[in-house]
């Protein structure tokens, strides 16, 4: 892994903006979806794809890099990353959530093996990732497992079953990244069922824990490298993020968790916030892929 220089970080930030525009267009044309948590997870996904999964997509059955987006409702971001890195056609984004498209409302691993898991029931993707880490070690295969969790997802008991298990078995090739945007479906975490003190919880369960700004691409890289270097225990990265990151009227609002229909006007404003020119906005709204 090479350390990202600031110039390449800027280039990667541009790619992240492009991914965000793609996911907004996808949700607009779907008529439903989860923009807030997709936008908060985008920088994490883009860093992983640029640095770990660019040469070969993750989740090959014979080992190597493994990945699960356990908060599967944010799959618009994963699909947009897939389009950005050439795993699917960009035009497919416009068929997100539609009959016949492999881009279902939550990932389906039979349709898209590189997504690693079928998701949509919170907590399960984490256990699948744990099973992958166990299998890599059992079969002496190379690779490591990265799983992105939502914060609301941490209210599932299965997460803490898995956290106990992974630490007990010393699964040090497992890294869980919490997309900690502080909000869930109906309200802020603290008003639903509080998670704090969150890093302490993971530490108490025996995990190696770091905290970062989940939108700082250099910090993401540093934390993932540290996690991979840590031996004897699994690693948790608590990534502080902003729900709706990059779209002015969505940032910090649980109203945009989903499943929301984005009007043409809202889509245009969001794309503009994310750096789209008028031609690109017109193309996306017309249901075509921008040049």
């Amino acid at each position: 892994m090479t350390i990202a220089a600031s110039e390449s970080t800027r280039a990667l930030a541009e790619r992240a903006l492009s991914v965000r525009r793609g996911l907004i267009a996808a949700i607009h044309h779907a008529g439903s979806g989860h923009p807030g948590g997709s936008l908060s997870a985008t920088d994490l996904l883009v860093w992983l794809w640029e640095n770990l999964y660019r040469e070969a997509p993750p989740n090959a059955a014979d080992g190597g890099e493994q990945f699960v987006l356990s908060k599967g409702h944010a799959c618009a971001a994963l699909y947009a990353v897939g389009a950005e890195f050439g795993l699917i056609e960009r035009a497919e984004l416009l068929r997100f959530r539609k009959l016949g498209s492999p881009l279902q409302g939550h990932t389906h691993v039979v349709d898209l093996p590189w997504t690693g898991a079928s998701t949509g029931s919170l907590g399960q993707g984490f256990s699948v990732a744990i099973g992958k880490a166990l299998a890599l070690r059992h079969r002496c295969l190379p690779g490591a497992v990265t799983v992105i969790l939502g914060d609301g997802e941490l209210q599932e008991g299965e997460i803490w079953e898995g956290a106990m298990f992974a630490a007990h078995h010393g699964l040090d090739r497992l890294c869980a990244i919490v997309d900690y945007n502080k909000m869930q479906s109906d309200d802020r975490n603290e008003n639903i069922c509080g998670l704090e003190p969150l890093p302490e919880k993971w530490r108490a369960f025996g995990w190696h824990v770091t905290e970062i700004d989940g939108h700082d691409l250099d910090a993401i890289g540093e934390a993932i490298r540290a996690a991979r270097a840590h031996e004897g225990a699994p690693s948790a990265i608590v990534a502080h993020t902003l729900k709706g990151k990059g779209v002015s009227f969505m940032e910090g609002s649980p109203l945009w968790h989903g499943s929301v229909a984005l009007s043409a006007d809202e889509t245009g404003r969001a794309l503009r916030d994310l750096g789209a020119g008028e031609d690109e906005i017109a193309a996306w709204l017309a249901g075509s892929v921008p040049a």
Partner: peptide, 12 residues
């Protein structure tokens, strides 16, 4: 619950 879903991951 963790055991059942982890089995899916191991099978992958």
């Amino acid at each position: 619950q963790n055991m059942m879903a982890a089995a899916g991951g191991m099978a992958s």
